Structure formats: structure tokens, C-alpha cells
Amino acid sequence: MNFQQSGISDSRVSELPPGWTEGSPGGIATNRDPASGGIIDRTIADGTWFVVFHRDDLEVLHDLPSRQAAFEAFARAMATPQQDLRHE
């Protein structure tokens, strides 16, 4: 049985990156690592996706069109060097 026959879309069965878990298939995904983790979820109002980072130097990303786009945006943001936000 392929994914189309089972009625499950490819996005719901795609593998998560290492360290990520999901609350329900294709839904909220979390990574608890304080340096490289975050939350990826979708809004109730319009179904767009957002990303919350555990890193204080990265801002929340909004209005992403898909879960895959949210994971890609997360990976791009995490590839940027962390900035020290401490005040000297």
C-alpha cells in the first residue's frame, strides 16, 4: 500500500530531523535542546506555520506556508552564528 492509497499525505509520514518529536503525525514538533531546539506548529486561525527558537538571539518566524517550509526556515536560522546578547 502506498501513501496515496492509505489516505496519508507524504508530509505526515516524512521523517523528523534528529532530536525532534511530534505531538501528533504532521502536527506540532518540538526539540527540547536548549541550544539547538525549538517548536514548530501551525496557527489555529489560518493554518500557517510558525517557528519558536530556544535561542534568545533568534526571533519567532510567522506565516510559513507548510511544515516543511518551517523546518527549512528553522535550519537556515540555526545555521547563523549565535550572537552574544549579554550586556557588558
Results as ranks from 00 to 15, higher is better:
V13N: 02
G37K: 07
S6H: 06
A45K: 11
P81T: 02
T80I: 03
R76A: 15
A45D: 07
H87C: 12
T80F: 05
I40H: 04
L58M: 11
W20Y: 01
A45Q: 06
A77E: 06
A77C: 08
G19S: 14
H62E: 04
Q68V: 05
I44M: 01
D84M: 04
H87Q: 12
R12T: 02
I39T: 14
G26R: 00
A75Y: 03
H87M: 09
T30M: 13
D63V: 13
L85Q: 04
A75N: 02
Q4I: 00
F53K: 13
E22P: 03
A73T: 03
R67V: 03
Q5W: 06
G26A: 07
A35M: 14
E22Q: 13
Q82G: 09
N2Q: 05
R42Y: 01
L61K: 08
S14G: 05
S9P: 07
G7T: 10
S66E: 09
S11N: 09
H62A: 09
P18F: 11
D10H: 04
V60Y: 13
T43Q: 06
I39H: 14
D33N: 15
Q5G: 01
P25R: 01
V52W: 15
I28R: 15
E15Y: 14
R76H: 14
R86M: 08
F50D: 08
A70R: 08
G38I: 09
S36V: 09
L85I: 05
G19N: 11
I44D: 10
R55Q: 08
G38D: 02
Q83I: 13
I8K: 11
T30H: 11
L64A: 05
V52F: 13
R67M: 11
N31R: 12
R32K: 12
L58S: 01
P25D: 03
Q4H: 02
S6D: 07
P17H: 03
L61D: 00
A79I: 01
L58G: 05
P18Y: 04
E15W: 06
Q68D: 10
D10R: 14
S24G: 06
V60F: 10
Q82T: 01
G27K: 00
R12D: 08
I28F: 04
D57E: 11
M78T: 05
R42C: 10
D57P: 12
A77V: 01
Q82C: 07
R76E: 15
D63Y: 14
S24M: 12
L58H: 01
P65S: 12
R67C: 01
